[in-house]
Write a protein that binds this DNA or RNA. Structure first.
Lengths: 228, 228
DNA sequence: CAAGATAGATAGTAATACTATCAAAATAGA
DNA sequence: TCTATTTTGATAGTATTACTATCTATCTTG
């Protein structure tokens, strides 16, 4: 069975809706592959245009610049993840179990279909790990934030915080716990791959040990009483 | 009492040792101020030269490029912090107390002297929060790592892991715990300032609540038995 | 004081990050 | 189906960036 998620994106993320034309859809899909292959810094709209057989100027009609394309891709990912989280925890009563599902989602284990709507989710996941923080680590965060560009991330964090509060009513750090969970998983995944001595995980991608670590981190903090 | 730390830096971090000349020292010190003021992306060697009353070409004699300067500054910071950690936990027996000191160091609370060797530590701390991850989030991490450019960070993580193991012998995630502690503090500090809805801390820089959060996170994970 | 190293000054190049314009092609509406 | 409108292609051009090269002046050091 196939589900077409069809996320409606914030209009400020683009100049012209890329999902509204064939060229636009190709910019997004090929953009993901380009960022994944050569990295955000080395990518240019010229290279993307060349690989697509189109022109730089055409891409600029959809996205103001490369950074906005990154913000779009990352926002798309968070919306997708949020939908998946709702969908996959829909039938569950136990918040503990919900968080367990979340961990698997964040690590993109048990992904049955690597292509959603022709978007390469593994490539996008890599981009999120390696480049997502560059979406907000800029001088214009405040302005971008005012334009709601990070709303999908905030919504996801809010949703996770909600589950945390189901498990542990009154927990005073639900949002920080949620955002730090996400960032920690991505950092550790990056370190495991590139700077393994900053972790305790072997180089042959010890996904299960990483999972055990974040599970331990998350549930220990939620089990412990808060002392003031 | 004044301590001149005088860290000896890895020679691959620069083309010519910036601590070996007046111009070099000014590049480092003014570079910190420039990065802090306008951010890494907007900074250029031309702007740095202009602000210093020197020429672009002179700066290129010290650092291959802007990225290398960032890596240098961040490496300097980690070496400084590692020294501070050793110095300030020197006389302590209790590893719990050592970690408590570490948390204060990482947040740069109780900093008696904001200038060390004419280096603006607050500005450098801000750079570490906002830009440090760009030092390793590149395509050439592996090559940079081979050249030992991240050794100061690894050494610090190793030292913290050591303290963790004093407190909790046999803890299987000492390095990951250490690196995720550092990254979490910086992320939450950035979010608190720029995207506060990702945290539980108020906008008037609720440093003490952030401290309470990371303390809770750290010690809950170290108190909890590991279940496999 | 001479030799060598360092810094200043100027120039130049390739690539990047756009913007502008106009014609061709696709499409949508009547 | 013809026409009006939108979308894309193609070309060109600009300002800035990220360097490299070279030559002269200055400053050290032996």
């Amino acid at each position: 069975m196939e589900y077409s998620v069809h996320v409606r994106m914030n209009e400020r993320l683009f100049l012209r809706d890329p999902e509204g034309s064939d060229l636009g859809r190709r910019i997004v899909r090929q953009g993901i592959l380009l960022f994944d292959e050569i990295g955000f810094e080395d990518a240019t709209f010229r290279k993307l245009a060349d690989r697509m057989g189109t022109k730089e100027a055409s891409i600029y009609r959809y996205f103001e610049n490369k950074h906005r394309l990154l913000v779009y891709l990352v926002a798309w990912y968070w919306q997708w993840l949020d939908f998946q989280l709702v969908f996959r925890t829909n039938n569950l009563a136990d918040p503990h179990e919900k968080l367990e599902r979340l961990l698997h989602l964040l690590l993109l284990t048990d992904l049955e279909n690597p292509l959603t709507d022709d978007i390469d989710l593994r490539a996008l996941h890599n981009i999120v790990i390696c480049e997502a923080s560059k979406a907000y680590l800029t001088r214009h965060v405040t302005e971008d934030n005012r334009q709601q560009l990070f709303k999908p991330y905030k919504d996801l964090v809010g949703r996770i915080a909600g589950i945390i509060l189901e498990l542990r009513p009154g927990y005073p750090y639900a949002r920080s716990r949620a955002s730090s969970l996400i960032e920690t998983i991505h950092h550790q995944a990056f370190f495991m791959e590139n700077l393994p001595s900053l972790t305790d995980f072997g180089q042959p991608k010890d996904q299960s040990k990483l999972l055990a670590f974040v599970r331990h981190l998350l549930f220990s903090s939620l089990a412990m009483p808060i002392l003031d």
